[in-house]
Amino acid sequence: MANETNTLQTQDVEKQEVQVAEGTERTRPGRAYVPRADIYENDESLVLVADMPGVDHDTLDITLEKNVLSIRGTVEMANPDNYNLAFAEYEVGDYERNFTLSDGIDIDNITASIKNGILQINLPKAGPAKARKINVAVS
């Protein structure tokens, strides 16, 4: 049905499913996927960017407990009425991922925003962790 040329890699398309601990089950039906994320650092903060298509402000849940930042996004199945699925390349499911933060994060000033299915979390560095210039004394 489809033929294509592209520059984005095939591995960028596949969703990775969340591995649940043995003996446990998910409380919600359907699958959960690990959102792809980028983390970069600038002078003031660490920035986490994650792909979460289908998640918005109301269905996103971010918690921080004992240095573990948990991101959860619930996605409602939005199947068009009176249509039958004829061809499928991706599956719809929730998103879950945890990150461990280092001590150098100012946890009171973490901010997050979501737009067009992209979550951005700003993790400001705590005072002492900011880059310091060390003067070398002339001997």
């Binding site: 049905m1 294509e4 984005l8 095939t10 398309v13 199947n79 039958n84 499928a88 390349e89």
Partner: peptide, 14 residues
């Protein structure tokens, strides 16, 4: 099943 390239699509018909 593997999506051949980006973006992955789903098609619904009637």
């Amino acid at each position: 099943r593997m999506a051949p390239s980006f973006p992955a699509i789903n098609v619904w018909t009637n």
